[in-house]
Nucleic acid binder design. Structure first.
Length: 398
DNA sequence: TCTGGGGTCCTAGGACCC
DNA sequence: TCTGGGGTCCTAGGACCC
């Protein structure tokens, strides 16, 4: 007899804020979760935005992804803390490890979320009790709270974990969909973002229930065939995607820079391109990839974006080659008048280097470029080691 | 004193081939 | 000289996620 699937979705509550709170408490500071506080990139950068906000900060009207300057105006006493990515990585590993003890069929969905397939567990008890044990174990051993959503598929589990927060367990079984999911605003449905919300509401679709009752034809006209079909399935609580235990290989690597003040000279642009090219190419080499497609984009002051991509015949991981292509493309798309807010560089069509054919008669200049990259990579890894060592020392001394 | 950074996937139109 | 249709690849743009 086919038994119904039991999926858990575990979601760290205000992840970056909680993790920073734990870090600060380890150093003897008070708990920033209890006061209006936010985590941001560089708090001194006038363009930095709110990465995570405490519940008291949210009550003061502060939203994730809004500018820190705006948040400070809304709440003058706000505590702004810079995020620590190394620490976040460790917190993430810690909570994933605990989840994996409950089921080996685990899919990490992001740094602070995962799905586990609990179908094969021998349920002598209510799944909600097991979920409660899991959430309490994370809280007691790691010091931060999670929500656990339980459902008969990934979509329902994820929707359930979004219900009341923090530190809660919720179920959303198929039969609970009309009662628990249909009354929700259509925007709450996974994959329905701002633009889709606008379109749907223009056609009188306000709740997930409204959406569930529509015909595929009318939705196709709004959002296209594929998305319409998926949205309709999801609104009815259907989703048969498996919990994927394999970590997918990267399909693209990119980096971008937003300037503190918009720029407009060739020199500034060139310097920024050089910086992002170094970063992207380094990450490419570290992952042992070559790229066959390079892309650039420019974001102007009014947030309009122009972009260009180009395939190259000989896949490469050489900074200079990538930078050269990027320069040419930026020169093609930049109108040479409008100040630039942000510039980005990406690589895609990634292949592993062992399948790449080396050209027999390579430009002798390439050897120089390769040497340059080798030095750069060495330097980077030395700095990285030193940073980690300092990190460990600091932790040891605390 | 408005809006980061890093990804994935989809669609539409044009080029090119048979 | 007007004419077709299918398939594939490429590019630009746009939507979504955390």
């Amino acid at each position: 007899m086919p038994r119904r699937r039991v999926i858990f979705h575990i979601d760290v509550n205000s992840a970056f804020l909680s993790w920073t709170a734990v870090q600060l408490m380890n150093e003897g500071h008070p708990d920033i979760r209890l006061v209006p506080s936010v985590v941001s990139g560089d708090p001194n950068d006038r363009r930095s935005i709110v990465t995570a906000a405490s519940i008291p900060a949210k009550k003061a009207g502060i939203k994730t992804a809004e500018p820190v300057s705006l948040a400070l105006r809304k709440c003058p006493g706000l505590i702004v803390v810079k995020g620590d990515w190394e620490w976040y990585r460790r917190c993430s590993e810690g909570f994933i490890e605990i989840c994996r003890r409950y089921s080996p069929i685990l899919q990490q969905f992001s740094i602070d979320e995962c799905f586990i397939d609990m179908t094969l567990r021998n349920w002598g008890e209510d799944p909600a009790d097991v979920a409660t044990r899991l959430k309490d174990e994370i809280k007691n051993t790691l010091g931060f709270t999670v929500n656990v959503g339980i459902g008969s598929n990934k979509l329902l589990a994820k929707m359930a974990s979004e219900f009341e927060k923090p530190d809660k367990v919720h179920t959303l079984w198929q039969e609970e969909v009309p009662e628990k999911m249909w009354p929700l605003d259509v925007r709450e449905l996974l994959w329905v973002g701002k633009k889709t919300e606008e379109k749907l509401k223009m056609y009188g679709i306000h709740t997930i229930g409204d959406l569930a009752g529509r015909s595929i034809g009318s939705l196709t006209r709004l959002v296209g065939k594929k998305f319409a079909a998926q949205m309709l399935e999801n609104a009815n609580g259907r989703d048969d995607s498996p919990v994927e235990t394999e970590v997918p290989e990267a399909k693209s690597i990119s980096a971008e820079r937003t300037f503190p003040n918009d720029i407009g000279t060739e020199k500034d642009i060139d310097r920024a391109l050089f910086n992002v090219a170094c970063i992207v190419a380094h990450r490419l080499r570290r992952a042992r990839f070559h790229t066959a497609c390079i892309s650039v984009f420019i974001k102007y002051r009014d947030f309009s974006v122009v972009q260009k991509q180009r395939q190259i015949s000989q896949p490469t991981d050489i900074t200079a080659v990538i930078l050269n292509e990027a320069r040419a493309m930026v020169s093609d798309i930049w109108d040479r008048e409008s100040p630039i807010r942000q510039i980005g560089l990406g690589v895609s069509k990634l292949t592993h280097e062992n399948v790449v054919q080396m050209s027999l008669f390579e430009d002798p200049q390439m050897e120089y470029f390769r040497e340059w990259d080798r030095k750069y990579d060495e330097d980077k890894s030395r700095n990285e080691d030193a940073r980690l060592l300092a990190y460990e020392r600091k932790k040891h001394n605390d």
